[in-house]
């Protein structure tokens, strides 16, 4: 078994309204910053022991499917690295 860190990034699907990001963008603009758009995402770093990277990725993907993301509104990515 090898120790891995799986990084799961969960973001709203394109086109789904993100009021918190809009509010954050407005606050940045109020501070004088110029920006075109802003998107936010949640990042989960999952430490786990797995036989290989593919196994670690498969398990983290299932975590994303079943809890970390809501497939109705979210897309997600999974990246695995040795811890």
């Amino acid at each position: 078994m090898t120790a891995y860190t799986a990084t799961v990034t969960v973001r709203l699907k394109r086109g789904v309204l993100d009021p918190e990001a809009e509010t954050t963008q407005q606050a940045l603009e109020r501070l004088g910053f110029e920006l075109e758009d802003l998107r936010s995402a949640d990042r989960f770093e999952v430490d786990l022991d797995a036989a290989d990277a593919a196994d670690a990725e498969a398990r983290a993907t299932e975590m994303a499917e079943r809890l970390l993301a809501n497939p109705t509104i979210h897309d997600y990515t999974v990246e695995v690295a040795e811890a």
Binding site: V16, L17, D18, P19, E20, E22, T23, N70, T72, I73
Partner: peptide, 17 residues
């Protein structure tokens, strides 16, 4: 209920935030 698959869709942050 929607998170648990009893009903379709998702309820998320209000437009007003």
């Amino acid at each position: 209920g929607s998170e648990g698959g009893l009903t379709p869709g998702a309820f998320t942050t209000n437009r007003s935030a």
